[in-house]
Design a binder for these strands. Structure first.
Lengths: 70, 70
DNA sequence: AAGTATAGTGCAATTTAACGCTCTTTTTGT
DNA sequence: ACAAAAAGAGCGTTAAATTGCACTATACTT
């Protein structure tokens, strides 16, 4: 997944769960500013930050071999 | 994947490809120090850094729903 | 249309990742 | 066992992420 896809995935998932940025930031323990920047494509979060956010959304970061279906 | 799993995945993949940290760092365009710190569990890389490393190893970062098999 | 909730931005301070250099430790090959 | 290669760690500098606060813009509701 490219950067934009990761963003869209997080944002989409948050919206699907009907959680506001504010709530998600609080639950994840990251600054609201940080989340806003990430979702608006202006950020380059640390792995830890992304992990905390993903976790609250019931998601996890994984690494997979590319082109497994090509 | 937890932090340690991500590290193990990267490191394991690099070793499977028989690439040294030095070569990987160069190919990925990240500092050798940065890669060393990450692989030794002392780092918290940015998403971009992890992405560059993964990319060279033929891997990609993805987000998936947790507990899909529980 | 007005009002409220939610999202995005500018600014500035603090923390920390990224990085190179040097050195030590560990692993690998002969 | 020795030598060479690779990995890990200390130290200091630079660049960037994190964060809060205040403000603006957009979306949503009545």
């Amino acid at each position: 997944m490219h950067f934009n896809e990761l963003i869209k995935t997080i944002k989409g998932r948050r919206e699907a769960l009907q959680v506001t940025q504010e709530t998600l930031a609080e639950l994840a323990g990251v600054g609201l500013r940080t989340l806003k920047q990430f979702e608006s494509g202006k950020g380059n979060p640390t792995l830890l930050t992304l992990q905390k956010i993903s976790d609250v959304l019931g998601m996890e970061i994984c690494l997979k071999i590319k082109n497994y279906n090509a």
